[in-house]
Design a protein around this nucleic acid. Structure first.
Lengths: 339, 339
DNA sequence: CTGAAAGCGCTTACAG
DNA sequence: CTGAAAGCGCTTACAG
């Protein structure tokens, strides 16, 4: 029940060769390659027979599928949803299709997804890697598979990367709270070896040290993606029970922000009065609170578009040796009106 | 730079035929079809040569791509993001891959996306259709292409549908506000001919009529997806300027809810005191407001899984004649504590 | 200006 | 138990 009619059917109907039909229909029949009248007739017949090209056959023949594999942690997370939307639209502009896969931050699942996409013959990958996903990335690199890492990367690997300046963003964010006069600023961050998380932590630490406010106990870095909710609830409760009261919190990701703020409100904390807040990533949620919230905003659309362009560049490049691109985009600090 | 090694390479390396290799590797070599020792050797060699099957070639040969085309309005909208996640995971469980496409509620784009997916030889479609997308659906139906409509459907078309009982959900939601004692309950809803929107409107209207509260002027149905923000802002302002004050609002979709509530807060309306609110769909946002909000929750995961199962059922069915399935799931009304 | 033919990497009757 | 061969629907040298 598929696109029944093939190039052969058209060729037979018109008494010409499939080569001629193919040439005309793929627009390669310029410069007198095919007679004008016959070309016209082929186009007419294709339309009237409702011809639909079979991309699979074409891909098999030319050795490219015009398909990009996109691997993210969780497509239902707005950050990745927005990223996926822009990647897809940019890919479409270039005639590429995108297959999306989720890892749920699970390393094995990332490996499995790469295999699935490989068997679908994707031309290249855009990947938000999992914590120990570097082994799979290394394997792809060995076979010179075009790929771009987004949002996160592995400093020890030579890859194309599209990221933001996580260190600077965190440093500035922390410093904002310092400037507001906060003395005990806590950090809520995933327990993760991922480099971008380390960078966010380092940015926070350096800003705290610079202000002479650094203290190990202010760092809540035991949050695990698998049970994020309880980890954050427990963290906030512990934080509120400290005798030496915390007066500022930097939430290092959007999911941590949302759950953290939820629990703070649960505990009847007066945000921005009792504890000042700053978050990595914007959330719809911020617009709906009594006291609004400052945040670091990432150029998600730009990240997506850039990743696609770098990838396609590499896919279509003749040489198998190319220079890897490290694209570091800058974030913006959005301040609330009356801190 | 792709999966270089093919079945032929393995066959040559071992001095057997490609048929034998194919049979062994696809697990169809049971019951003495292939000698145990040779089968074992083939598997070993495949592994050591790092053989990766070419799914394109397989699909072309067997006439099925094991791929589902998913068409939604906007993958960055959490409703569709969650839907996509569950569709994908269920598809993966069955060995299917999903290609996602966005329409931005644009009819032409929907047609274009169907064409792109068709050329990728998807085995079937799961579609959240656009307002006038019925023409494209009709075309697919004519060629007996397996498809399932989700979230929305066209009552005049015979299709597989996975939806919720929009009429009942809206009726119940409106009645909740009636029971709270609201006398002038407004409806905010898209200007759309889509049947599910009409159902939501009808549910509201009937509940209002039953309570003797119906009035045409309470219906704000001029919101256009293309400029949703200004339409809602204007609607809320108009509503607040009425001399005969509104004391309840039913927001008929999640995007309308979020923007509507935002503007109400902007205008310093005391939610739940001055105006009681009920929304179609849950949003993270609701947890973060001074006064929480009642809402209608849809079984998104179930909708996604059901759609996949119906579709695969139809794809794999031998006969080309099947009965269309209308799957109507029920919603749940989540009430706030102290209205 | 046009056609015959090979081949992309598989699977599957068919023959032995 | 195994192999030779056709064919899925394209594209692309090659020959005329």
């Amino acid at each position: 029940m598929k696109s029944r009619v093939s190039i052969k059917d058209i060729a037979e109907a018109l008494g010409v060769s499939t080569a001629t039909v193919s040439l005309v229909l793929s627009g390669k029949a310029e410069e007198g390659r095919v007679g004008k009248d016959i070309a016209e007739k082929i186009r007419e017949t294709a339309k009237s027979m409702n011809y639909q090209p079979n991309g699979l056959a074409r891909s098999l023949r030319i050795g490219r599928s015009q398909t990009i594999g996109l691997i993210v942690a969780d497509i239902s997370n707005p950050f990745f949803g927005i990223l996926a939307l822009h990647i897809q639209e940019e890919a479409e502009r270039h005639g590429y299709t995108v297959i999306i896969a989720n890892t749920s931050e699970n390393d094995q699942k990332m490996g499995k997804m790469i295999d699935i996409l490989k068997s679908r013959q994707v031309d290249g990958y855009i990947i938000v890697p999992t914590e120990h996903g570097d082994v799979y990335i290394t394997q792809l690199l060995e076979t010179k598979t075009p790929l771009v890492l987004v949002d996160r990367y592995f400093p020890q690997l030579q890859t194309n990367n599209v990221i933001v300046d996580n260190y600077k963003a965190s440093f500035d964010a922390t410093e904002l709270l310092v400037n507001y006069g906060c003395k005990r600023i806590a950090l809520f961050i995933y327990k993760s070896a991922l480099f971008h998380m380390q960078e966010r932590k380092n940015g926070y630490c350096d800003a705290m040290k610079k202000a002479g406010l650094y203290s190990q106990e202010l760092i809540y870095n035991t949050i695990d993606y698998a049970h994020i909710n309880e980890d954050i609830v427990n963290g906030i409760r512990k934080l509120l029970s400290e005798t030496n009261a915390v007066d500022g919190i930097f939430f290092a990701t959007n999911s941590i922000s949302i759950l953290g703020i939820k629990e703070l409100l649960n505990q009847k904390v007066e945000l921005q009065k009792q504890i000042k807040i700053i978050c990595f990533d914007k959330s719809d949620v911020f617009d709906f609170m009594k006291n609004s919230i400052s945040y670091v905003i990432q150029p998600i659309a730009g990240m997506g578009r850039t990743a696609v362009n770098i990838l396609i560049e590499q896919i279509t490049k003749e040489e198998s040796d190319f220079d890897f691109v490290m694209c570091k985009l800058s974030t913006k600090l959005v301040e609330i009106e009356n801190p």
